[in-house]
Design a binder for these strands. Structure first.
Lengths: 154, 154
DNA sequence: GAGGCAAGTGCAACAATGTAGCGTTTGCGC
DNA sequence: GCGCAAACGCTACATTGTTGCACTTGCCTC
């Protein structure tokens, strides 16, 4: 991540109680870590990897353990609050499920490593599955250069 | 590795020189490991992960080092001979590129862990990319239950 | 508000997967 | 056969994720 010289870039780390509500509505306890993780994911426009989430928590002054973070994310996945995106990179990325059942594709920029949600593009898969196969979920990841990187390296 | 009392040289692990030709045609040296890896990938119907490739080599009596295997696979990727499939699992899977430019989807069975090529299903992506984005490659992975597992656990 | 208890957290250790450095071996052009 | 770069094998290390266990805390009940 490039250092941002601006002194006050992120003053409001999502003020709504959305995070708490999400957790409670899924029968979970309200804890520091859980709330902070959900807020980080809600606040980040794009899917975040484990490291980025950890950095966000640290920036927000929320002390945390690596393992606890994994367990918080596990809980979110288990309760359908978050989704994991596999992609090319070694570490998985996580995003908040904003609408149950809605699926969208992701774009992975090979140059800057950014992963971007393509809300308009939904994996079309309907046909072509061999007989007997049951589809639960489809994941479509596009690879290439994002607009910014495409300009720099044509 | 189990000692093989049988004097006969195993049940023929791909006899064609296809592997050698593939390697030579890409300007590579013919080496034990490289040939064995390509043959393993050619012989395996489905994409194999690192562990499975290693097991295949061992079964074929080809001694090898973990690192060397990684490097052989790197070489194949670098020269477009093989493709890496990310998927859900921790370890990546590899498959031989049978036709340059041809792309197909993969099905990952959540129960048995198998990954199956869906030759008929090609990731349709054309439209919907934001302006300025350059697409290099699309990866479509479906998740669910394969025919065998679907029957066992309906 | 105090007490109790299961869920959540933190720490240490470990497993799996992948990389880097470096000395030795080997394929292949001459 | 000879020389040399490419490939190999070994050790060590980095990253990502998991397990076990003791301690802490959120939340329910009284």
């Amino acid at each position: 991540m490039p250092t941002s010289p601006a002194p006050a870039p992120a003053p409001a780390p999502v003020l709504t109680p959305a995070a708490r509500e999400l957790i409670v509505s899924h029968g979970g306890r309200i804890t520091r870590i859980r709330v902070a993780v959900v807020e980080a994911l809600l606040g980040g426009e794009q899917p975040l990897n484990h490291d980025e989430i950890a950095a966000t928590l640290t920036a927000a002054g929320v002390a945390h353990d690596r393992v606890t973070l994994y367990r918080a994310l596990d809980w979110l996945l288990e309760h359908g609050l978050a989704r994991r995106i596999a992609g090319e990179e070694r570490a998985g990325r996580f995003e908040i499920v904003r609408a149950q059942g809605h699926q969208h594709a992701h774009f992975h920029c090979a140059h800057c490593g950014q992963v971007i949600c393509l809300e308009d593009l939904s994996p079309t898969t309907a046909a072509a599955l061999p007989a007997g196969f049951q589809l639960e979920r489809a994941e479509l990841v596009l690879h290439g250069a994002c607009a910014a990187c495409g300009k720099k390296q044509p």
